[in-house]
Design a protein around this nucleic acid. Sequence first.
DNA 1: TAGGTTTGTTTCAAACTTGAACCAAGCCCC
DNA 2: GGGGCTTGGTTCAAGTTTGAAACAAACCTA
Lengths: 174, 174
Amino acid sequence: MTTRWLTPEEQRAWRAYIAATHLLEDAIDRQLQQDAGMPHLYYSILANLSDVPDHRLRMTDLAEKSKITRSRLTYAVTRLEKDGLVRREGCPSDKRGSTAVLTDAGMATLERTAPGHVETVRAAVFDHLTPEQVGQLEEISTGIMRALEGDGTEAATREDVPWRRRSSSSSPCT
Amino acid sequence: MTTRWLTPEEQRAWRAYIAATHLLEDAIDRQLQQDAGMPHLYYSILANLSDVPDHRLRMTDLAEKSKITRSRLTYAVTRLEKDGLVRREGCPSDKRGSTAVLTDAGMATLERTAPGHVETVRAAVFDHLTPEQVGQLEEISTGIMRALEGDGTEAATREDVPWRRRSSSSSPCT
DNA sequence: TAGGTTTGTTTCAAACTTGAACCAAGCCCC
DNA sequence: GGGGCTTGGTTCAAGTTTGAAACAAACCTA
């Protein structure tokens, strides 16, 4: 089958998207490194914990929620634990499991640095988007997400796609 | 000044965008690592070279075009040079400068792997976007780009805005 | 034209990411 | 109740990224 190349419009959109993404991640990383002493991903991990009942999550669930590999999360949590922002707890009901818990210091860091982070995101993104565009961004992003995660309703045709990840649901381990 | 938090709609859009971006970069990196033996960024660098007259660009211009730091580019080009896909040439007219040139092998690699890459991008992104959404994606991305390239982290970088790019105007270095 | 500044690029160490290999602990099933 | 498979998580080496510092050539400017 011959390649279906991108149309000129698609190419322009793709290039703009790639460029915007690079610039944005750079800017956010710089700001958070400056103000919170950690890259964006690490901040997101804290945020993801803060955002869940009891501020605790099984490693696998936290990786899933953060859209990163377990290996990467292990490294990140090790660092955050060293900084005292997160603590690991074993899981009594499943001795393989371990649970990441946001500490008070972690919560405090989050609260102290959230305003600056939001301000950066606003300045870079939302301050010049119309409400319609906000909706469009969500829809487009959700579409990409679904295509890559699979939503379970379209099993057979996508079975061969190599990058699909199985979505798991492990126990809360409270 | 009190923080202007994100509205619920903005939050949803932001989270979806972050998630989509992570998943997409992962997927593309995996595909290209598989098929071309290099991460997306390195492929983009080759593509950026292929896309310019003579397939050659001063390091700084290539970094600018690729939206990455010079340091990162130096590392990448060193690796690509080791693989024979790019070659460095000195610049006679400005002895500080060096120029990255796409080799025939680099061009061949690009041609061999482009279809698979496009297919991945299509499957993840464009196959489920309407033409309107493609336009919206471009506009939103362009807006973010503008906000971040104009909003200076430092004055010197801002001087480099299109109308007075000394490197590209003064020394094509052919 | 000597000094200081700017510009183009590289280097270096420390931090981070990757993917495969690994180690337990649960699970299954005869 | 002892294999064999799966799952949760970590480890390890190799590769990549970062930001600051180093360098050298070019550009002032007095």
